[in-house]
Design a protein around this nucleic acid. Structure first.
Length: 112
DNA sequence: CATCTGACGACCG
DNA sequence: GCGGTCGCCAGAT
C-alpha cells in the first residue's frame, strides 16, 4: 500500500488546523478506516514537510506514545493550538476538507 | 505462512 | 467520562 496520497493530503492541512484519523480515512476512502490512517502517519518519512502532528484521534486526543506525544503537543502549540489534557479543541481547530462546503444552518462563523 | 503489534474507533457496561 | 472488547489492516517477526 502506498501512502503517498495520504501524505499529499496531509500536506494541505493549513497551519493551526487539525484533522482526525477517522476523517482522514473517510475523505481518502482508505480501506480499513482510521487505523489505516494511523499506519500512514506512522510511516511518514521525516524531512518531507508532512505535518503529521496535525492529525489527532477522535475528540482531538493525542494518541501517540512517548516520546512523540510530547513532540506532537509541542509542535501543535507552536502553531497556536491550545492543548488541554492531551486534547485539541476540535470545535475550534478541526479542518473541514470542504467536500460540499456544507454549512449547517446556524453554524457559527468559521474562518476558512 | 502464522502471529503479533499498533499514531483507530465503535460499542458496551 | 472511563476502561475493556472487538473488528479492521498493513508491517514486522
Amino acid at each position: 500500500m502506498s501512502w503517498d496520497p495520504v501524505f499529499r493530503f496531509v500536506k494541505r492541512i493549513p497551519r493551526g488546523r487539525v484533522l482526525t484519523y477517522g476523517v482522514l480515512a473517510e475523505v481518502l476512502g482508505l480501506p480499513g478506516g482510521a487505523r489505516s490512517a494511523g499506519h500512514a502517519m506512522a510511516a511518514t518519512p521525516p524531512g518531507k514537510g508532512v505535518p503529521w502532528h496535525r492529525v489527532v484521534g477522535e475528540h482531538g486526543k493525542i494518541l501517540i506514545r512517548e516520546p512523540y506525544g510530547s513532540l506532537q503537543r509541542k509542535l501543535l502549540e507552536s502553531e497556536g493550538i491550545r492543548i488541554v489534557e492531551s486534547r485539541v479543541d476540535l470545535n475550534r481547530h478541526l479542518w473541514k476538507p470542504l467536500k460540499k462546503s456544507r454549512r449547517k444552518h446556524g453554524t457559527p462563523k468559521r474562518r476558512n
